[in-house]
Nucleic acid binder design. Structure first.
Lengths: 200, 200
DNA sequence: CTAGAATTGGACCCGCAAGTCCAGAAATGG
DNA sequence: CCATTTCTGGACTTGCGGGTCCAATTCTAG
């Protein structure tokens, strides 16, 4: 697989998105290569042609794909957190995303399973978290510049806490079906930022 | 398995704790029955004698066991959140617990994987979260009674957000190795409660 | 002490899904 | 248009690991 032709590239992408869908529906553990083949109308040789490392390599590709998706789904809100209205819209988009997805977050299951093991998957997560954090920090800084958030607030820490809250909220939603925690984490987090100006 | 003799009970417990350890070290997906047998010096017939439902039933028992452990590890702090010093001690105990555990949270992996599927595992999580929430709510109420937290604070929501933050913080720690998020979630959460009295 | 239940050992079965292989079809570039 | 590379199909192998079975042994109660 030195160079991919256009057709090859299409097939590869089809496999990745198909595998992602399969994982979303059935979970990582239950996702079989054969199902991916059926769904994407490909044969085994194709899978191993594009992913010589087999299942593990495919899973990693899926993780990358889904990590991109997570951030993409929050745009354009995440990139322009310059007013409280924007923050609120972003909050809503996050809640909506997971409500719509309902079943399973492929990223979480991906990382919860083989993720912690393989260094590759770890890197994917770390990068996702980093980018996410960065976007939030920029948003907080912007609000600080506008005087809407106290300058004394540690933007990094606040953003880190917010992301943790989202992650946990999503996990709890996935495993109990209750969206309360995700909403609470977002709302409490944002309100904390809003209230900061009244504290100093 | 109508009635368990003392010996039987011991063996059963040995299997559960052994399986838990195995899962902690290798992850749910990679945990093989055979390894559990070796570690606990038991044979296959014993496994299926005590867990007729096979692996799934064993996993569920492990989940229950670990869920209890999660709360037990936070005691006695969690049960007596009646001063800011106590809150701080609780916070430290949570951080310490996961730092010490380092590798993998069996509960998270357990629930991240087959958890969302089997209704039994869902129930275990739901119950854990419920108890955890309850303990925090009681703590918040106590602090409100003492005038240390504003009465206007929605205890349920604040507790829900805090738990989400912890969960997410742990996940991020497990998959990136950075404890920052867990600490940030706890600290920001507690500080938010502390600051509440200055807002109303 | 003894009948019946609980417990234990380990050999065996079996299905599933990952991974291999090779031959043939399509595409690419000169 | 032809040589070379990329791409595709599907049959085959393989090993792993969950689950079954039965016979032997130990425990408990009356």
């Amino acid at each position: 697989m030195t160079v991919l032709t256009r057709k090859g590239e299409q097939t590869r992408l089809r496999i990745v998105t198909g595998a992602a869908a399969e994982i979303r529906e059935r979970g990582v553990a239950a996702a079989r290569l054969e199902d991916v083949m059926t769904r994407t109308s490909t044969s085994k040789s194709q899978l191993f042609h594009y992913f010589p490392g087999g299942k593990e390599e495919l899973l990693l590709a899926v993780a990358r794909h889904e990590a991109d998706q997570v951030l993409a789904d929050q745009q354009p809100m995440l990139g322009d957190l310059s007013s409280w209205a924007a923050w609120q819209q972003w909050r809503d988009s996050v809640v909506r995303r997971y409500l719509a997805q309902g079943q399973e977050c492929p990223l979480n299951s991906l990382l919860g399973q083989s993720g912690s093991r393989s260094p590759g998957a770890r890197a994917v997560t770390a990068e996702l978290i980093r980018q996410w954090l960065e976007a939030l920090v920029i948003g907080i800084h912007r609000m600080q510049a506008a005087g809407e958030i106290a300058a004394a607030v540690d933007a990094e820490r606040a953003a880190a806490a917010l992301i943790a809250g989202i992650q946990g909220g999503v996990i709890i939603f996935l495993s109990t079906g209750r969206i309360t925690h995700l909403e609470a984490a977002l709302d409490v987090g944002i309100e904390g930022l809003r209230a900061s100006t009244r504290l100093f």
